[in-house]
Every structure is written in C-alpha cells, then in structure tokens.
Amino acid sequence: MAFAPSKGKRHLSKEKEALSLTSMMDMMTIILLFLLKNISTSGALIKPSPYLELPVSIRDMEPRKEVSILVTREGILEDVDEGKPINKISDRAELEDPANTVIPSLEKFYEDHKEFSKKLGQRFTGVTTIQCDKEISYDWLLKVINTCGQTEYSTIDFLIIKAKG
C-alpha cells in the first residue's frame, strides 16, 4: 500500500534544474571554428552548375567572372537556373555533326556578346569561362576551342574542381 509522503518533506525546497548549455557550447564552438577555416569569398563569383560534373585537376588559379558557357552531354547552354537550362545555345546534333569544325550557334553567341560589350563601352578581354562536363569527348572540346579562337576569345578558362593534397 502507498504511504503518504512524510510530513518532514513539506518544507523541502525543490531545486529547479536549468538546461546545461556547456556541451552545446562546445559543439557550437567547434562548428564555428571549422566554418571560419573554410570561409572563402571567391566561391561566390562562379557557381558550378548542377547540370554537369566538373573534372578534377591540380590547378589553383582563382576563378574570375567572364562570359561563360556550359558544355553538357546534351549540348551547350548559357546557364542553368533551378535545374532548368537557360538559353540553349547548341544542341547535341550540332556538336556531333562531323562537317562542323566550328559550332555556328556558339560562334553567333560569342559574336553577339562581343557586339553587346562594345555597345556598353566595355573593354573586350577575349576571355571566356567554360564549365565542361568531365565526360565530354575530345572532339567536342576541339570544336568549342576552335569556335572560341574564331571569335577572338583567345583565353579559355576551364572551370575545374581543385584536387585535394
């Protein structure tokens, strides 16, 4: 049978237990230090597209913002927004066509961009940034490079993922 609580316990003051934040502080401090170590502002200049997989390389040149295109397995795009291609420049058939040493639609894209830059009074640097999927064939790569050369884009920056170590 249950016994009534002792009358002596009537005046026993119960201590309020507060939440211990010490261990949570330890965890937060470690996460903060890790994120501070990884902080980098150059990553905001170019965002790798989720539409392709970039190759890995040992280069360490910092990315810079220039006119950019995406060379994917389905064709050449200007950009991708929320997984949807924006302004498809060239399709796969045009890239695979053996008669093409230069890609006509890409050539037109670069010429239009050059004209637009001139109208805005911007200095033409002749630099283009290309995000190329790592499985893209050498044949397609040469066509893209030839097209850039024909349109006076004499410096091509291939975006790569820096290899660790």
Partner: peptide, 26 residues
C-alpha cells in the same frame, strides 16, 4: 552562435573551384 553558424554555413565552400587557363594557338 545561432546567428553566425547559419551565415557561415551558407558561404562555406566545401569543394574548391579553380581555373585551367588555355590559350589556343594564334
């Protein structure tokens, strides 16, 4: 901490990007 950590998490770069510069022949 609650303010700083989400801010740093949003700008953290877990894969570093770089450029491979290629100059086609003239």
């Amino acid at each position: 901490m609650v303010c700083l950590i989400p801010l740093l998490l949003s700008i953290a770069q877990f894969t570093q990007l770089a450029l491979l510069e290629y100059l086609p022949p003239a």
